[in-house]
Amino acid sequence: MMTRAIPLPLHYRINIVGLLALCVILFWTMVALFASQLAPHGVGEIVDLDYFGPMSRQFPVGTDYLGRDMLSRILFGARYTVGISLASVTIACVTGVTLGMAAAVTGGWFDTALSRFLDALNSIPSKLFGLVVVAGVGSSIPVLILTMAVIYTPGSYRFARALAVNVNTMDFITVARARGEGVPYIIGSEILPNIIGPVFADVGLRFVFIVLLLSGLSFLGLGVQPPDADWGALVRENISGLPFGAPAVMFPSIAIASLTISVNLLIDNLPKKTRDRSA
């Protein structure tokens, strides 16, 4: 049962799995930020006469269907995958959590109407929502960010509201109300500090969903459009290499998996505050 715990500063501990996951996430964040400095070749540069080249010293993860360096393309792809997903998840969760807490504290018709509406929105399967919007409006990066934010706001709302409803039944909220406090104080000072941990875990989970949705849409050719390419688009453009097991198909997928699995593992192994001081 026991995994070794590694002490961190400020009475926090993390186990080895969580630490590894954290490192992978930090790695991809760095890659997204410094892709142009890290990439050995340009994104569009055709560097190999052969296409679907194998792994070699020169091209560590092979070349793609045009003979471009896959490593560079994956490093640049991180920008789109991580950047778009991060923007979406931020919009979705800030909106969702704020509305969720407000609904829980206010109650009444505001809560009922908002909950009904967002629940209804939530019962459109996410990929389908994406397909319909792309069909209607066309695909561009702002449209992708906003669409995915709309798709994941209801879930974030529902989650935050459920947590806030639990906290809202606590006597300290009643005490604050009896004191005469207003809704903004109750939300910001009494509820938020008590749900922030689970909310962050939920943000992580939703980030994973968004990465997967974005990759899926791009894979269908409806997400990030050429010449730009996120990891999902990289798989799509190289799918014809699949029958001969070209590394160009597998490595973008592996990049996605390494990011999403790490986020999930980090959520399951979040740093814990050590409770007993005598330890």
Binding site: M170, D171, F172, T174, V175, E190, N194
Partner: peptide
């Protein structure tokens, strides 16, 4: 209130 566990944030 009765329960200080829930009465204190």
């Amino acid at each position: 209130f009765q329960s200080a566990d829930t009465a204190l944030n």
